[in-house]
Write a protein that binds this DNA or RNA. Structure first.
Lengths: 279, 279
DNA sequence: TTGCTCCTCACGTCACGTGAGGTGGC
DNA sequence: TTGCTCCTCACGTCACGTGAGGTGGC
């Protein structure tokens, strides 16, 4: 019989860990002195402890190890747990590889530009959205702002609550003529008129997003950053892109109603969203 | 300004996480209502949050992210942290790959034998050890047991405390003649005589160990398991092997003193130790 | 007798998730 | 007014590490 520190030395497992394994019932000492509660381990407990150590190195949790070490556990179940673990490790492996690629991309990028990128691209999935929206073919941002104002006024006029920031969906582009859908998410519904109607924007599984802050005229920079990112990561654009106005501040050149501008102080904040998929 | 749930929806970061980031000072809301403590976030806080999300995906801790986001952090430091992270990820990657190999080996093994292996091999490093030991050329286990008894008696006779289980080091082997060192670790020292002397067993960085329980005559099975393991893992034997008697029970054929046997009840437990290195 | 070893709490780790219980806002 | 949202605790996670404070063993 060995005292805990001797058994710890023999097995290269710390006394604290041995106490922990005792506590959770994974490896009970062969004998516990009833007077002073000293733990005593028998030599033939070492194989079990070694097995615990090895299974831990394979990445099993202590709870899983306890299950694996039940002596009546059929080989099929053991195989099942190993296969599960294998799948998890493969998963982790791919995640780490992806990480490594991202880190290296960032290192290269910082090498070139001397700082963290000005635009961060994040992937997310967006839910379907009920919107009041108006379609139009426009060639100018000013027209979009104007239309947006109209849709918002219409929604407000019908006592519907806006359920999120307004946005524009860029449907088709021919020459300089752009078909856009100017949309305001709403809870509930508003009646249709000739211009505004209730629509549902579809869900998008993988949306690449980038936020542009400041002068709206420079938003094309954000778009370029997003395109470069998609290219580098091997993503393709697979649907109409969106522009979400998280904070709206119209360029000075736009003559918009004063009350419209007053409600949107500070620099504009716009999010570009590109539906993408791996090429 | 957005309420926490709106900002959570926009960013795909849970409200709980936002509160957490507030608490640790990573992302404070732009405004907190002094009356009801409601948090309000500004649209232009989204780029920072996106950056947090992206850096988290790279595997940085929140504390590291906080450091990375200090606006006066020089590019060199950012590069340094990225390189450090890259090294860690590469490390993890290799560890996962090694794991995967081990898991697959185990799956194959269980496929063949229908159960977990009877012997678990573990790697550990062993410290140098002060021992009282006797050299001998033997051809029979019985002689070893006899010699061990003599060394133990000698140590006990000089009132030295045994500092661990006795062991045998297998130094050289020619034909059937085996040069062995029978050793008892001691604290302090004993005087030398013609047979027993103080020696130091060297440290071993990588010792492949396997525990054999039960009939000592079958210990060669453990040795074979260890050899197969070393072969499969690409390890070479690089020094004299050891046999540690964690619990000694002599085969019936050995005529050992009764008092010697009486102190060692139950089945014998022996650990084989092979110093190894990657081929 | 002295120092060493063992014991049992209790707290910390890391990044939140999950209630509990209570209050403000539309 | 009702239900929704927000708030602050407090506890749990996972596998221990790190003391604190006290007692037994040689």
């Amino acid at each position: 019989m060995f005292k805990i520190s001797d058994f710890a030395r023999l097995s290269c497992v710390s006394a604290k860990m041995l106490r922990h394994y005792d506590e959770i019932g994974l490896l009970k000492p062969a004998y516990v002195d009833p007077v002073n509660e000293y733990r005593y381990y028998a030599a033939d407990q070492l194989p079990r402890l070694n097995r615990i150590v090895v299974l831990k190195e394979l990445g099993f949790t202590l709870e899983q190890i306890a299950r694996l070490l039940k002596d009546d556990l059929p080989a099929d179940q053991i195989k099942g747990m190993l296969k599960l673990r294998r799948a998890e490790v493969e998963q982790l492996l791919h995640a780490q590889q992806a990480r490594l690629v991202q880190i290296e991309a960032r290192l290269n990028q910082i090498e070139r530009e001397g700082q963290l990128p000005s635009y961060e691209v994040v992937l997310r999935s967006v839910q379907p959205m009920r919107v009041a929206s108006a379609y139009a073919v426009v060639s100018d941002d000013k027209e979009i702002a104007q239309l947006l104002h109209e849709v918002e006024t219409y929604v407000a006029g019908h006592k519907a609550r806006a359920a999120g920031p307004p946005l524009v969906v860029y449907h088709e582009c021919e020459d300089l003529e752009q078909e856009v859908e100017v949309a305001v998410p709403v809870q509930g519904a508003v009646p249709d008129d000739e211009q505004v109607a209730m629509n549902e924007l579809p869900a998008v599984t993988t949306m690449a997003c980038v936020v542009h802050t400041g002068n709206y005229d420079a938003i094309c920079q954000a778009g370029e950053a997003l395109c470069r990112w998609a290219q580098a990561q091997g993503y393709d654009l697979i649907g109409p892109s969106r522009e979400v106005y998280l904070r709206f501040s119209a360029p000075k050149s736009m003559a918009l109603p004063a009350e419209f501008l007053a409600r949107r102080p500070g620099e504009s904040v716009t999010e570009l969203q590109f539906p993408v998929a791996k090429a």
